[in-house]
Design a protein around this nucleic acid. Structure first.
Length: 475
DNA sequence: ATGTAC
């Protein structure tokens, strides 16, 4: 495939008319990132996405891009509401998987003295692991309310605080969610799992701010060197997974019905104007509300645990943002402001300063963009930029991005060795399943600093602070 | 990511 480097961090994948690419690909990366992309089929997936009806500007790939179901993880694709489509594969199985950062007012040395006990308390209070359940069990009626109200439900029930809401994307609620579009099976899976972390790359981390890159923005965000933070990475659990599963089947039928052909069946989709698309949008937003509630509840559990250890301290939400979503947003296309459907799969929304959907406290500086690192590596807080808004539908990377498949990672090293190495570096790890530690070995991922440097050099978001892990809880 | 296959 014809890849052309246009500047140090931008590569254009030229249109291949034989496979039906409607637009070019735009890939953010340095040479190392581009090499990895060739090996594992992500490049073909970027080209395949460029073939979808009504795609606007480019099929984008962030520097953490890697192979995924149909669409690559790290991909961004926006579609015209008139001619375009929506695809469950462009959102991902873990609908509204995302991250939040909470700020404590405690310094590193204070947590250091009780890090083992604190981590153990968090591990016992926040259920984790594949089939985990238990933080709270709710009735079906309550669950429907969660699906309609998101984090607002959690706050109303006392599992969160009203001041958190303005710092959650969409203020904690996707108002057009349609709980009736969510299957009974999905609801059954979701009922016992609210307030649980899950498994895989999901985690709960105690961190410390160890580098500030932009003092002005850091001040606006309330970030200070040496300050302890908590990062929570999780999603919509079995419920979102089931919604994705259900609607892939719906979309496969819709493709025949509307005569859409795609290069890979995993890209199955329906016209945005169709009934099938409306149903999926409603169900997807309901699953997203579940994820927003889930992170709000876990945040509250973390507050309670920290309260036991540090009665005078409190935790304040910096921001909560998803990186697996399709959103209808206003963007400039061919000189006009229009509503488009932006799919971000393993890509983070990054609104610039002045964007109307930002909370008042961030409107001058832009949206906090949270980029988790892999297990035992640093995480970053970035801020959205005007260039990102104009060029790639206000999107940026979402993490380090895999270089080894889970299977390949499992072959690398024993869990004991990995844990020992992390502990030698002063990082306490507690994991529900030992296999997860092997799958999540840092070597299975790209270097997150490198990924973040690419998006910063490209100007699609800017570094604000770096967070170093002190303790990690895995599923 | 996921009751890692209905």
């Amino acid at each position: 495939m014809a890849l052309k480097q246009i500047d140090p961090v931008r590569w254009v994948l030229e249109r291949d008319f034989k496979i039906g690419m409607k637009v070019t690909g735009l890939i953010y990366g340095d040479s190392y990132i581009i090499q990895n992309l060739e090996k594992e089929g992500a490049l073909t997936q970027i080209a395949n996405v460029a073939c979808l009806p009504g795609i606007l500007k480019h099929s984008f790939a962030m520097p953490d891009v890697h192979w995924g179901y149909g669409f690559p993880i790290g991909g961004v694709a926006a579609f015209s509401l008139n001619e375009g489509i929506i695809s469950p594969g462009g959102v991902g199985y873990d609908i509204s998987c995302g991250v939040r950062v909470m700020l404590t007012f405690i310094e590193e040395k204070e947590v250091a003295s009780c890090i083992d006990e604190l981590t153990a308390a968090l591990f016992s209070r926040v259920p984790s692991g594949v089939g985990s359940k238990g933080a709270l069990k709710i009735s079906e009626t309550e669950l429907l309310s969660v699906l309609a109200k998101g984090a607002l439900w959690a706050v109303k029930k006392g599992y969160g605080r009203s001041e958190d809401l303005e710092c959650i994307e969409e203020r904690g609620t996707l108002p057009h969610a349609n709980p009736d579009a969510v299957s009974k099976k999905a609801i059954e899976r979701g009922k016992p799992q609210l307030g649980t972390l899950g498994s895989g790359n999901h985690f709960l981390e105690i961190q410390v701010i160890d580098e500030i890159y932009d003092e002005n923005v850091a001040r606006q965000f309330g970030l200070n060197p040496g300050q302890v933070t908590v990062m929570i990475h999780c999603g919509s659990r079995g419920l979102g997974h089931q919604v994705c599963d259900d609607y892939i089947k719906v979309m496969l039928r819709a493709m025949n019905k509307y005569g859409i052909s795609v290069p890979d069946r995993q890209l199955c989709c329906a016209p945005l104007k169709s009934e099938e698309a409306k149903q999926y949008l409603g169900a997807m937003q309901a699953a997203a509300n579940y994820a927003l509630a889930n992170r709000e509840i876990i945040g509250q559990l973390v507050r309670e645990v920290f309260g036991d250890f540090f009665p005078k301290s409190d935790l304040k939400l910096l921001y909560d943002v998803s990186h697996n979503m399709a959103h209808i947003e206003k963007h400039g296309v061919e000189g006009k402001q229009v509503d488009v459907c932006v799919h971000r799969k393993g890509a983070t929304r990054a609104f610039p300063p002045g964007h109307p959907s930002l909370p008042e406290r961030y409107i001058q500086v832009g949206q906090p963009v949270i980029i988790p690192g892999s297990m035992g590596t640093e995480s970053y807080i970035l801020v959205g930029t005007k260039r990102g808004m104009e060029e790639c539908f206000a999107s940026t990377c979402h993490g380090a991005g895999r270089v080894l498949s889970r299977k390949a990672a499992m072959k690398s090293e024993k869990a004991d060795t990995i844990l020992k190495r992390l502990e030698d570096r002063g990082i306490k790890v507690m994991a529900e399943t030992i296999g997860t530690v092997r799958e999540e070995i840092p070597e299975a991922y790209k270097d997150v600093s490198r990924v973040v440097d690419v998006v910063e050099k490209a100007g699609i978001s800017r570094k604000v602070a770096r967070l170093r892990p002190l303790a990690v809880i895995k599923g």
